[in-house]
Amino acid sequence: MRLTAKNLSLSFGGQVIFKNLSFSAESGEILAIKGPNGSGKSSLCLCLAGLMEEGDETAVSGEVYYGGKALPEMGIAERCACVGIVFQNPDMQLFSPLVTEELAFAPENLALPRDEIKARIEEAAGICGIKHLLGAKTNRLSGGEKQLVAIASTLTMKPKFLIADEITSRIDTDKKDIVRNILINFAKEGGGVIMVSHNPKDLEIAHRVIELKRGKDYEDRSK
């Protein structure tokens, strides 16, 4: 599957954050996005995940396609099968008291049968190495463990593309390596990864890097 972004532009309060951003990413590829603070990296992630909303101050234009189909044409379930997103702050991504419930949340929303929900929880927990945490309370987890649970929770939707918005920035070093391996394996198994990061070690695992420059042109360079 191919992700295609066409002429994406974003401005806040009349100030251009990025304009006419066009790029594509393939399954099996890790595409990194970097740039200074305020260059719109997180907003770009929201646009790619179909979660960016226009507001009084926010103007968004352009299109995002997954496998040739535009995001607005998709229903929520179809969108979830195409793209999942993990955010920077692990504390505000978990809303269930137990890890198992957190992992069940997305498949329950997708109205999957109970056996399928159980299978997906097992699989995602295995990928993220958190099977031992399945019975744990989410508020007792460390930041790194919470982030792994958030990733696993997204993986239960089995998305074709995974967007990772600075997901290693608030976790300790050993968990950063685990997260990087999860992203590498996700791409190896045919998924596409869009990864926002400043961390040089994160950028090392990327096949391509796009650099956003606030209000200016962007730079797309292959490694």
Binding site: A49, L51, G75, I76, A77, C80, G84, I85, F87, M92, Q93, L94, F95, F105, A106, N109, L110, A111, A150, S153, T154, M157
Partner: peptide
Amino acid sequence: AMSSRGFGA
């Protein structure tokens, strides 16, 4: 985070 995980699908 809830919307991204299919809430309301």
